[in-house]
Design a protein around this nucleic acid. Structure first.
Lengths: 255, 255
DNA sequence: GAAAGGCTTCCGCTCAATGGAAGCCCTGGT
DNA sequence: ACCAGGGCTTCCATTGAGCGGAAGCCTTTC
């Protein structure tokens, strides 16, 4: 029964954010009358809303509840000022993502009007191996998880996508060594991102911060200090011991 | 049954974003074993997550689904660049809110590190009569709804809260005449906000944009043009005819 | 007008949800 | 060490709430 309720919610997607009752029934694989009953209750409660054409969409109440997710208010609230700083310095896409399975989920993004077009969407997912934030999150994930991803097929999006386990393994080692990742043309040929890890209270990597710019005419290394500084700032705001320690001055972190 | 699932979700709040099973059971008013069963299914699906201490919180999957709400991705995506502009100009709180019942719901906010402390929270609510965005949203709501709010008790938060229907009625008329609202010290004595309406495709007010600053040393009227311009920009991005029409030059809107 | 598709409502049936109870574990107090 | 209280986890007999086929209405298209 819970599964059916959640199945109805799962019928919505970025491609289909608004659906008729029949579409919901088909996408959720439920009989029409069952769907109707569920949808009516969900709508009465505000989890779904119905527009003037009788179509359904996700409702405000559900969004309010979901805003309580740790990846919502907590992380976002702490990160926002630093995302701002980074955005002001560059006026390019600045985004924050977390790891879920073998994908990253974008939890915040600041984009300028004239920034390069990118594939990510707040609330959306992309594979971990093909994105800057993904490389960072994977590099600092538990080794078992890294091996799991390395043992899975790596989907190719462009000629420059990291598609072999050996190459990915090498890149991950570089990320750990350097403390940042550069992803160039892995999905969109003209798009490059520089990403750095965000640490939480337990000094584990809980998110990744990246900036996304046009590949053309950009030396990614000029962006690294700013991205890392902003990521450090967020880590400190999240209470990460390693990020606080640096201000002591004597003990520089060894990577 | 749907009610029970949603009741569990509704047990979470900004004050209690993380709950034990027993707390959930109590807050949702359900027997422990029922709660346990529901919570387990919700957790398996990712709607809830369980931390290392065995406590539950809202999960990433639910947040992803909820990001599809029109108040999430759609409005936010269009509004973000304009919120950015306004933030860059002022480095004070910039926020976007929508109307729900007699309350506003904050759907986006950009805050600086040194900005004045405010009561609102993304995903949170405040009464419509005591906030700048609320005054705007109410002033342009359907008259029936305005009357409904005017006929309800107006809670007082500070000596300057609008607490009489006559005063609120006058303020709303001023908002409609001027095209913006100023709310000064209605909740927090030292906090002032300037808000302007955001129009959607049907040329109805679908959201309100505001900037929140310290009352001290601020002439709110100096902020009005910037707030209104940003709100106009968002309206245009949302496809509001009236916001596009202005660029024709000949037909200035009459308020 | 006919057909197709999209809803809305009804109702007999049944099985999955229910919740009390038992049991285990942990913590704090004496 | 023992006890009490609280927090979970699991079990299972019961039953009523959920189920879904069917009927009917409405809208659109040909």
């Amino acid at each position: 029964m819970v599964g059916r309720v959640l199945g109805v919610l799962d019928a919505f997607s970025a491609e289909h954010p608004v659906l008729t009752l029949s579409e919901l029934s088909r996408r959720a694989g439920l009989p029409l009358s069952t769907t109707h009953r569920l949808v009516r209750e969900l709508t009465e409660r505000g989890a779904l809303e119905r527009d003037a054409d009788g179509r359904y969409r996700i409702g405000l109440w559900l969004w309010e509840v979901a805003s309580l997710a740790p990846h919502g208010a907590g992380l976002r609230e702490s990160a926002m000022p630093f995302l701002e700083d980074l955005y002001e310095a560059t006026h390019q896409h600045v985004q924050l993502a977390v790891l879920d399975g073998s994908e990253v989920v974008y939890v915040e993004r600041i984009s300028g009007r004239n920034a390069v077009r990118i594939q990510s969407r707040v609330g959306g997912r992309l594979p971990v191996h093909a994105t800057g934030v993904g490389l960072v999150l994977l590099a600092f994930a538990v080794p078992e998880w890294q091996e799991r991803v390395l043992a899975s097929p790596l989907k190719r999006f462009s000629p420059r996508t990291i598609a072999s386990p050996a190459e990915l393994r090498r890149v991950l080692a570089n990320v750990r060594r350097d403390g940042y990742a550069i992803s160039d043309g892995q999905i969109e040929p003209e798009v490059l991102s520089v990403a750095a890890p965000v640490y939480g209270e337990q000094d584990t990597v809980v998110a990744a911060l990246s900036i996304v710019v046009p590949s053309e005419g950009t030396d990614p290394r000029t962006l690294v200090p700013a991205v890392r500084a902003a990521a450090r700032g967020i880590s400190r705001a999240l209470g990460a011991p390693r990020a606080v320690r640096v201000s002591g001055g004597a003990h520089w972190e060894t990577l």
